[in-house]
Each structure stands twice: as C-alpha cells, then as structure tokens.
Amino acid sequence: METVENTSAELLAFEARLAKDEVIEPKDWMPADYAKTLLRQISQHAHSEVIGMQPEGNWVLRAPTYRAKKILLAKIQDEGGHGLYLYSAAETLGMDRAQMIEQLHQGKAKYSSIFNYPALNWADIGAIGWLVDGAAIVNQVSLQRTSFGPYARAMVRICMEESFHQRQGYEIMVRMMRGNAEQRQMAQDAMNRWWWPALMMFGPHDKDSAHTQQSMKWKIKRQSNDVLRQRFIDKTIPQAHFIGLNVPDPDLKYDEENKSYQIGEINWAEFQQVICGNGFCNHARLSHHKKVHREGEWVRQAAAAFSVKQKQKQQDLATAMA
C-alpha cells in the first residue's frame, strides 16, 4: 500500500484503471484515502460478522431440535468464518487483526448497529436469518463487484456460503406461523422488533450519507443505500404476507404502477442513538467481546510460546547434528 502524497499522474492512472473496471490489488498504488476508506469499511464489516455471532449464540444452546441446533451452529460458524475472511482482506492493507480488534475495543472501529438489539425469543433467530441476513445479502451481492480485489473475492465466497442463511431464517418463521397461537405471537413479536432495524442496516438516505458519494466514485460501493434498501423491501414484504405476518408500518403503501412498496418514515433518531453507542446492547456486545478476548489471552500466549520452543528445539537438533 502506497501512502505518500498523491502525485497527479499516479492518481490519474488509478482513476483510469477504475474507469476500465479494473480490480485494484493490495500492492498496487492507491490514494491514501481509498485505502483508509476500505480499511474502515472492511474492518467494520469483519467486526459485524464476529459481533453478530452473539445474538444468535444466545440461542444456540436452546435450539429446540437436532436439526435446528445443527443449522444454527453451522450458521454462526459461517459468520465467524466470514469475519475471518474479511479480517484477512483488511490485513492485505497493512493492518493486522490484533490492531483491528484493539480499535474495536477502543470504540474507534464500528460494527453494524443491528447487533445492538437483543434476541429475545426463538422466532428472533428466524427473523435474524430472514431479515438481517436478507438485508446483508442484498448489500453483499452488490459488493462482489467492489473495486478492491481481496474484498471482492471475500464477498464472492461469503455470498456463496450465506445463500442458506436467509432460507433457514424464513423456514423458522414459516414453522412458527404454522404452529400454535403462542408461536405465531412470538413470530409477529420478532417481526415487529426486527423490521425497522433491518431497514436501517442500509444506512442513511443517499442525500444524508457522508460516505456514499466518494465510495461510489471509487467503486468501493456499487449501489446506493436507498436503491439497495428498496430492493430488500420489495422482495421481503411479499414473503411476510405469504405466511401471514404483518409489516409493522401503518404508512405502508403499494405502488401498483412501479410494482414497489413505499414505506413510512424510518426513525433516524433511534438509528443515531444506536450508532452513538446508546443502543440496548452496545455495551453488552462490546464487553462480551473484550471478556472473551481477555480470557483467551493465556491460550494465545501458550501457543506462541510453544512454537518458539519448538523452533529452538529444531535448531538445537540441527546444531547437534552438524
């Protein structure tokens, strides 16, 4: 990664490459801000995957059947794997994983606000898969064409692996809606609590988004927040109606002409509160991550110390043989 001041010739060459839809590789010249934006976005994405393991992890020991337990474990494991792919992609820009984790712990790096809501009943696991993963997938499919090679390649793998996540979530919702009155009530309760936060996952409206324009220009982001959000709305609402779930939006309208739904106003004050750290679970998620990291330290130290001793032993052996 090149971080010296942009000379215009290099910048022009870089922009020309982007114009040709070329993919930028880690050792290629790139403007410092491009690298910085990527690092911010990829590490945030990685942290989101890892923090996202927590609300689902909250239910993994209570999953009600063999099938549900295996699926949920495999899904949470995927999230961890995706965090890992993304950390690796970010590491190609010269920041190692330990630094990224440190930034997360210091509050300098963010993760998706959606995980600052609690998972309160089993239907929440359905709603998370269906709505949260559903929203993430819309975004991630678009990111497969992002201009930075390692990020784009991680996205391709992630999208392929996540293809079952949304389905498993919807399947839980279907089963709950076909179950008894209590189960239907739980499903609707989950829908009521996750619908709006899922819509907020796409970020502020385009006109209010600080990062969108530059990111679009650099082809880091390929489609705008509002375009992606609308795509999600239009494909998800019919799925809700199909199983008898109400969309918790009194202002929801269907535009026959454009075959598209118009939603009511998103509560941006709530969005800002959660981003600022005042969400219901902000503190809990971060302190859990810190605790686990701290508790794992002696294990990492032991592994590192063992490796040093092994190498020393091999060297001694080689010296003795010589």
Binding site: V60, L73, E297
Partner: peptide
C-alpha cells in the same frame, strides 16, 4: 462444546470447536 460458539480464544479455534460440536451432534 457448543458453549464455545462465539467464545473461543481465537477466531480459528472458535470455528474448530463448532466443527467438533457438529460432529458430536451428528
């Protein structure tokens, strides 16, 4: 073993322990 899910000492080991848990469940 599933209790380690999202609680592993390092991300790689977290995934490894979930694999082991899945084997046991199967």
């Amino acid at each position: 073993m599933a209790e380690w899910c999202s609680n592993g000492p390092i991300l790689e080991e977290d995934l490894a322990m979930v694999n082991i848990s899945l084997d046991f469940l199967g």
